[in-house]
């Protein structure tokens, strides 16, 4: 029997993020007052409190801000992936995202490494943003 993966459950505040991800776009709220992107999505800007936000596509480019190689699965859903890299990516637009770094060389991962978004199609409705080392 296949082990159920952990799916995100979109809510009215986050549905645009997941809808864009399904289209293989990384989209985040951008404040129309101060011009800053933020993550995770809120209904007011965490920097200037404005509610003039627009979902805006990001470039998908960023760098590794920090990472960890996980050797113990939090649940059976992740056991087959071990060992895997959980990372925090600093997007070119500023915000951070937690993500999985998809690589066949865990030992090569470094802070500051350039990465690009990719999408893991979990099923027909859900795509999970992950990152890969940028092609140079």
């Amino acid at each position: 029997m296949a082990i159920e993966r952990i799916f995100p459950s979109p809510n009215p505040g986050t549905a645009p993020y997941w809808k864009a991800a399904r289209q293989h776009q990384l989209s985040l709220p951008k404040c129309q007052a101060c011009g800053k992107f933020h993550s995770y999505p809120r209904s007011q800007c965490p920097f200037c409190s404005s509610d003039k936000l627009e979902w805006t596509n990001c470039s998908g480019a960023g760098t590794i801000f920090s990472y960890t190689e996980v050797f113990r699965a939090p649940s059976k859903a992740f056991a087959a992936d071990l060992p895997y890299i959980v990372a925090i990516v600093e997007l070119k637009e500023g915000p951070h995202l937690m993500t999985r770094l998809v690589t066949n060389d865990n030992a090569s991962v470094r802070i500051g490494q350039p990465v690009t978004v990719a999408f893991d199609d979990m099923d027909e409705e859900t795509s999970l943003p992950v990152f890969k080392a940028s092609q140079t």
């Binding site: 993966r5 799916f7 809510n11 939090p74 649940s75 859903a77 992740f78 959980v86």
Partner: peptide, 8 residues
């Protein structure tokens, strides 16, 4: 939504 699916 934004962290648990990655397995930290």
């Amino acid at each position: 939504q934004f962290e648990a699916p990655y397995g930290p």
